[in-house]
């Protein structure tokens, strides 16, 4: 029994090691834009999950496309499969709140294949919350004040013109 002890222990360790997930299938690190921008080297070439609102416009690059994802502090460019764009119903702008997405992929602080850009080469793009339009109600005070100030400006313009004329005549 004494001779079997170390062998059982070794087998146990072996099972644990085999069962451990490899780095490639490790859970992605949930990161913020600030972490990626200020401590980029720590996350370089690691699998990250970045969550935020898609902003602006998608930029097509062959079968891939760039989407810029902002977590409110920094926007990071994510290179996704162009077909993934169909999942996004709206992009953040003045008129719309963009869809909130979770991008999982490899982060590069200096992506050589993209001319040194700081980016995420995404493997998945998951929409967490669809985007929606933003109302821009008119400021009620300005509705009343603008005609007033407009009339004052026109009256002063007229007064200025008359003064200039009389100055030229005299």
């Amino acid at each position: 029994m004494r001779t079997w002890g170390p062998l059982v222990a070794l087998l146990f360790v072996g099972v644990i090691l085999v069962g451990m997930p490899s780095p490639s299938c490790a859970a992605p690190l949930a990161v913020t834009g600030t972490e990626l921008v200020t401590h980029g080297k720590l996350y370089n070439r690691r699998i990250v999950a970045f969550t935020g609102q898609v902003i602006g416009s998608p930029i097509r690059d062959g079968r891939k496309a760039w989407v810029n994802v902002s977590d409110g502090f920094y926007a990071i460019g994510a290179l996704v499969e162009a077909k993934e764009l169909s999942k996004i119903n709206s992009y953040g702008s003045y008129w719309d709140v963009g869809a909130e997405v979770r991008v999982v992929g490899t982060f590069y602080t200096d992506d050589a294949s993209q001319g040194g850009e700081t980016d995420i080469r995404a493997t998945t793009l998951q929409v967490i919350r669809p985007g929606h339009p933003v109302p821009h109600p008119v400021n009620r005070y300005l509705v009343f004040l603008t005609p007033l100030t407009g009339v004052v400006a026109l009256l002063l313009f007229d007064l200025d013109r008359r003064k200039r004329r009389s100055a030229h005549l005299s």
Partner: peptide, 25 residues
């Protein structure tokens, strides 16, 4: 058709122009 921004700029323009004329006059 961005009426909110339109109003903001027309109001700001009229206040600025009126103040400029008032100064010159």
């Amino acid at each position: 058709a961005d009426w909110s921004s339109m109003l903001t700029f027309i109001f700001s323009a009229s206040v600025t122009v009126a103040s400029g004329f008032a100064m010159s006059i």
